[in-house]
Design a binder for these strands. Structure first.
Lengths: 337, 337
DNA sequence: TATTAGCAGTCAATCAAACAGAGTGCTAAA
DNA sequence: TTTAGCACTCTGTTTGATTGACTGCTAATA
């Protein structure tokens, strides 16, 4: 347990470093943050903080920077939750309108978070959803519109271009058959379910169904749909990326996404998960933090918004923003009911 | 007009520089490309080529690099069109399947081009298309699916979540009204047209129509839809971007897009447009080239695929790839008919 | 006359040495 | 227990010297 003075010093180091990105020296702290201690005292304390792993020293004659453990202590014990500025609140309210389907909403959310926090934002939508019903609409002789409705209220649709014309009767019959066969199927397994049906029971319609299948495969792409929305230019301006190799690594990490995905997947039980730097198992991620918020509607878990950043970031603002947005999203969902 | 020897030397400089990214010296050319001239002769010729503006010398004791004029001469007169490798051809054939609507197809095309050429690729879809008909389908008490079909065969749909329930009769009537009022409207003006109708003629349905309108605004976002698909990590590996400022500029240029858009818009009359470096009016683009291919189906112009790159790039491969893909796309369109 | 060999000259890139500045740890005094 | 003072360490920047690639020019050669 840290004593009061150490806490104050640690908090000052973290907060100064978050904005300056430069190692923080004892004099800076004594001057800027009106602590009642002399630089020498602060130096002694900083040394102790380093020895117990909360601070690091890039080299012997430099100031200190927070370690992952230091950030963790700050986040858990010292951080004061900031209120969002009116500017940010207005921006959020204007850009998250709640129009469209769940996917549209998630995209809006990702864009907004990314803009406000200036960090790449990854969206995970879980499809634990099951099929409620399928409607088939004949748009023209050779074109069908297949509408897929899930119990959660998500609506997706697929356009199937046929090779031959199809009579109205068949469309009606097909619609019935699909509904009786597929109702209750988990959305993410729809493609597989449909494929196996084609070969077994519904051979008559196989050519039509294959077209529909193709569409479903394309539109409902598997389990976790990940969208990364970002504002790369401003991120590359972070001093962390003045070394172009680091910048490339970061971009690479984001686009292969595997490592990040694993971390995000593990964050389950809590509403808000924060994984800081070396807390990540993957070494690749040792300098980065991931902050992830679970989104739920009344029926339960729907997905996550996750922010990926160098571990030097404004944790307080990030958390406030995510929480505010979570409320907003919950609100939209409850209105829909 | 350049004599034969100058042509050979210019071609060698361009081709060597394209792969090496290092200024090319007289000895390199004499050794690697089996030209029958001594380094001294080549030196003299290179000096003349520089004086007439085809080559540039970064500093007095370095080799030469092609100027924009040099690339232009190469592209117009010297370039031998390369055949695509089997690898590339297979990749293209596998990834451009032609499934889905025009927009899906365009996305496939952009991804493919971007992968093969390792460059950001921008897609422009022109909506000169006009409305053929609108269908409205009632999905549940409070949810309508509005299907918008254009004469070009593109189908879009919008989900409108209503605040109140709507009777079946009204849906039918609304559908009729919209069709008579909007048929023939250019797709890109649909939103405006609908908005003005709401206030004038169809006041009874205004609350429903506003919801639909909202959706249309969101889904059919204006005139030119631009999608940029890219593979940023590998692009940042280009030696052009070893200076991080250049990298940021490039990314910035791509995301603001204004400058690039203007160039692309101007390329109209030809099937294939190549604008090299300083040929661009915008100074921002003086080190970049844009290669843009017009795509048409039987009814005419549909859109463009444009590749943006530092002006050092494999023009021959780029052109071959775009042409091959153009054929592929034309093929898909004619099959659809 | 056209080409080429040879050589002096230029410049970028690299490396080491010198120097300034920021910040520490330790000691001794308050 | 806290603080002032000082020697020390390390980074970052500047300066100068060195190396190497390549040119332009001159004079010799085919």
């Amino acid at each position: 347990m840290l004593d009061d003075r150490k806490k104050k010093i640690l908090a000052s180091v973290v907060e100064d470093y978050i904005t300056s990105a430069e190692p923080v020296g004892s004099k800076t702290i004594a001057d800027k943050y009106n602590l009642e201690y002399s630089p020498a005292t602060i130096r002694n304390e900083m040394k102790l903080l380093e020895e117990s792993g909360y601070l690091e020293q890039p080299h012997v004659s430099s100031g200190r920077i927070p370690s992952s453990k230091g950030y963790r202590y700050y986040v858990d014990n010292l951080m004061i939750s900031k209120k969002l500025s009116m500017l940010d609140i207005n921006y959020i309210n204007n850009s998250i309108t709640g129009y469209g389907n769940t996917e549209d909403l998630f995209e809006q959310v990702a864009d907004t978070v990314s803009k406000i926090l200036d960090r790449p934002t990854i969206l995970t939508m879980k499809n634990e959803d099951v099929l409620e019903s399928i409607k088939i609409l004949k748009i023209s002789d050779k074109i069908l519109l297949v509408i897929i409705m899930s119990e959660n209220g998500t609506i997706k649709d697929v356009i199937a271009k046929l090779t031959d014309t199809i009579p109205d009767d068949s469309v009606r019959e097909l619609s019935k058959l699909l509904n009786t066969n597929l109702q209750g199927t988990p959305i993410e397994k729809l493609y597989n379910a449909l494929s196996s049906i084609i070969s077994k029971e519904l051979k008559v319609y196989s050519s039509v169904l294959e077209k529909i299948c193709e569409g479903i495969k394309y539109e409902i792409s598997g389990e976790n749909k990940l969208i990364s929305s970002n504002n790369l230019e401003s991120i590359l301006n972070l001093p962390e990326f003045s070394d172009i190799e680091k910048a490339k690594n970061f971009i690479n990490m984001l686009s292969t996404k595997n490592a990040v995905d694993t971390v995000i997947d593990k964050i389950q039980n809590k509403e808000l998960g924060i994984v800081i730097g070396s807390e990540n198992e993957e070494i690749m991620l040792k300098d980065y933090s991931i902050i992830s918020l679970n989104i739920a509607n009344d029926d339960g878990y729907i997905g996550k918004i996750s922010v990926v950043s160098p571990k030097r970031l404004d944790y307080s603002k990030t958390v406030s923003t995510l929480k505010y947005i979570n409320d907003k999203v919950k609100n939209i969902f409850s209105k829909d009911k």
